[in-house]
């Protein structure tokens, strides 16, 4: 897919988004508000994901490690 059709496709996606969320019908300042709200939310979600997901993944990883592999070692360490 070359750049031009990619651009067209993105524009089409944007149109669909506008139609579905009705921002197509909004006045420019409403659009601005709506988009800044949306973008803020999106950025926040991404940021939160960036902060927390690695932590959760490590925790989950350790949990499974604990469950299957290193159980013995751990119990030993507690007993000790």
């Amino acid at each position: 897919m070359d750049i031009k059709s990619m651009k067209n496709y993105l524009y089409w996606l944007y149109c669909q988004f506008e139609l579905i969320t009705c921002s197509y019908l909004m006045e420019p300042w409403e659009k601005l508000l709506f988009y800044s709200f949306n973008i803020t939310m999106l950025v926040m979600v991404l940021y939160i994901a960036y902060i927390f997901v690695p932590v959760h993944i490590t925790m989950a990883f350790q949990f499974f490690l604990h469950l299957f592999g290193n159980q013995h070692e751990n119990t030993v360490s507690i007993v000790k």
């Binding site: 579905i20 969320t21 009705c22 921002s23 019908l25 909004m26 409403e30 709506f34």
Partner: peptide
């Protein structure tokens, strides 16, 4: 569902 989303946005505004 998408129709209701649209009406929801418009109603908020």
């Amino acid at each position: 569902v998408l129709t209701y989303v649209g009406y929801g946005v418009l109603t908020l505004f």
